[in-house]
């Protein structure tokens, strides 16, 4: 009996000279279960107290659908904007040298470090019609704060570092031979960038954009101040969860939460596939 257990243990893990396997893995599994897995299980179970019809009823409500569309659509647009400007920023930060470059590079991480509520009130004030940027923009007839455009601005802000930080190490390691070959064969700089550099960067660009999208879909703090939160127009899904909780509609809140959780799992899967693609691409 004991021998059987030992052989099972050995098959499950390779023998090691180092101590502490049981302790460290046990602690990890206990903590992971208590803080993350069991709470998430509670979320997955809860909405079914409504039955499938009740669950469906919550999600097919026009206000809920509009909020999900705002969160997912806004995150997609923000990720697209970040792909363009994040790629340009990464390119300039890796390829060119100019005074203050390291300072600018450090600034890219600001949306990671700045608490979302602070970003939220700052963006809201910045883009309101009497704000530093919102003022000139409103003269041009563009209203940002308290509109869906404001949601997209906030989601772009918090997603930007993901694209830049994913691209930078890849750009730094990029083999420049191909670019030089293209140039000596008579390609223009633009042709080289679009035909040679961009295809090599594509896997990491898509990875960075997916990370930015994943972050933006669930974003709350930086959005709610600038969004205006008009139901059906600029209301995001996480806010609707908060509203339902305030009305003690736990099952309704959990129904939207489960959709957000499912999206998170789908994105993790997509990122794993992307990683394999990027590895194969190199």
């Amino acid at each position: 009996m004991k021998a059987a257990i030992v052989s099972l243990t050995i098959r499950w893990r390779n023998p090691s000279a180092l101590p502490g396997f049981g302790l460290s893995l046990g602690l990890t599994l206990f903590y992971l279960s208590a803080i993350v897995l069991i709470p998430l299980a509670a979320l997955v179970i809860k909405p079914w107290s409504l039955g499938f019809d009740g669950f469906w009823h919550v999600l097919s409500n026009p206000r809920v659908l509009a909020a999900l569309r705002m969160s997912f659509g806004g995150a997609a647009i923000a990720a697209a904007i970040n792909s363009v400007f994040g790629a340009i920023a990464a390119w300039v930060l890796v390829r060119y040298s100019f005074p203050g470059k390291r300072f600018l590079d450090a600034l890219v991480d600001l949306p990671f470090a700045l608490p979302t509520a602070v970003a939220g009130i700052a963006l809201s004030a910045l883009y309101s019609t009497n704000g530093w940027l919102g003022g000139p923009l409103s003269q041009l007839g563009i209203k940002v704060s308290y509109t869906p455009l404001g949601v997209i601005v906030a989601l772009t802000f918090i997603g930007m570092p993901f694209v830049v930080r994913t691209l930078e190490p890849v750009l730094a390691e990029l083999n420049r031979d191909a670019e030089e070959v293209a140039a000596t064969l008579g390609a223009t700089r633009l042709q080289t960038i679009f035909r040679v550099v961009l295809p090599m960067l594509l896997p990491s660009l898509v990875t960075g954009a997916t990370l930015a999208f994943a972050r933006a879909v669930g974003e709350y703090g930086s959005v709610i101040f600038i969004a205006g939160n008009l139901p059906g127009i600029s209301e995001i899904a996480p806010l609707l969860i908060v509203i339902k909780l305030e009305q003690f509609d736990y099952a309704g809140a959990a129904a939207i939460g489960v959709i957000m959780l499912a999206a998170a799992f789908a994105l993790i899967l997509a990122l794993n596939l992307l990683q394999n693609w990027a590895a194969a691409h190199r």
Binding site: W12, S16, L18, F21, A42, L43, G257, I268
Partner: peptide, 29 residues
């Protein structure tokens, strides 16, 4: 420091909270 089965799953699960909306994190509790 050790080789065992299920390591990839464990690593993914540890990263999980990063992918979850903060509001959903509060909701589960």
């Amino acid at each position: 420091k050790f080789d065992f089965h299920g390591k990839g799953v464990l690593t993914t699960l540890i990263d999980l909270p990063f992918s979850i909306s903060p509001v959903v994190s509060g909701l589960v509790y």
